[in-house]
Design a protein around this nucleic acid. Sequence first.
DNA 1: GTCTATACGGAGATAGAC
DNA 2: GTCTATCTCCGTATAGAC
Lengths: 221, 221
Amino acid sequence: MDNDHGSALRDSSQRKHFGMRKQTHDQRLKQILQAATELIGKYGFYGTSLHQIADAVGMTNAGVLHYVKNKNELMTMVLESTYDADNPVWRFLRGSSTIDGKDAESAPMHIPVLYRRTTEINESRPDMVRLFSVLSAEALQPTHPAHDYFLRREDVLWRQFSRIDWKVPPGTDLENVFATANSAMDGIQLRWLRDDSIPLTKLWSRCEGIIFPSPLWDDYR
Amino acid sequence: MDNDHGSALRDSSQRKHFGMRKQTHDQRLKQILQAATELIGKYGFYGTSLHQIADAVGMTNAGVLHYVKNKNELMTMVLESTYDADNPVWRFLRGSSTIDGKDAESAPMHIPVLYRRTTEINESRPDMVRLFSVLSAEALQPTHPAHDYFLRREDVLWRQFSRIDWKVPPGTDLENVFATANSAMDGIQLRWLRDDSIPLTKLWSRCEGIIFPSPLWDDYR
DNA sequence: GTCTATACGGAGATAGAC
DNA sequence: GTCTATCTCCGTATAGAC
């Protein structure tokens, strides 16, 4: 990229300078995305201004726009880089990771484990759960910059989920369990965000008892 | 109210005029609240401007503010007047109505009936379901004008629900069923609003099969 | 009862200085 | 890489004419 300024100028100090610039750039971007995650999670996309985000990272409006083309692109980057990238459950569903030490190809796979793992992970990142909850409602409107993301996400999740050879009680309707458990998860997360006096994992354990009832699911959880 | 303008002036034409004014006023207000319900449901409270609402009822910005003190009060009025007022399920839970022809004091009360009735009602008013879904996420933030409403609502609903002498299978944990069913309802409504190619009642029937499984609940639905 | 006019602040985005 | 300055438009809300 732009190598024609003469090789004589690219001494080691220059290269170091370039290296530091690059690192700083990525760090800054990460800071911005993190601030955006928190603020959009709190106030929604429409309720958050670039100015708020800029303030949170100690910059000005124009400074932030040096890193992202515009507000819509910021939304996209937040969704794609921040949320899914470091979600172990997704990595597991994609087959590139393990769940409870088992990979998707070996050992019995139990659905309740997946949801318990999800709540454990999400309990440690309320900001992202909040972002996700707020956007999945706000982005119902087709004009919302996150609309397509949530449309696709539903399908993608199901395709990955249904690829797995789950061990379940005889007669189980996988698709209905999937839809019901995911729906209940959405709702219980909202309740947890509204009042976190009870941990998400505990709130979910109550749902698990209803959705995967004993004794039917005793050997499959 | 304001009777001291002299009885000589209150002839029949005046009274008629006053009557018409009153009617027009209420109608206008209702129009405004209806438009606000639709628009806030689509774009959220922060994403909706008074101008949009004014446009929808063929008025100007200032015209709308003749009916509501400010935007926050509009939010309150929408919530309190529009949503709960004409919800038969709530009226039933308050004990002032019947469910499937039975009132709360007689006949066996079955929980799945309550949720089925809710989906039937909500299927006919997507605008209000949307309003409710969007706000319950947007209003997580304590500074949101609907925050308190949703905090109280959770408690109120449970208090009314738990007053009823539900007929349920032995060993049922009422509170867990309530929390799980409500959460699943939140999530399934979101999915329905995102893609309404399958009716809400049908989507819910799948959840019912999971949350109130056969044969345990066969005599209680 | 509804309008126009207006005050005032904040939004997103760009140009150009440093 | 970040700032200031600025553009343009939109936001809520009020005052006062009709």
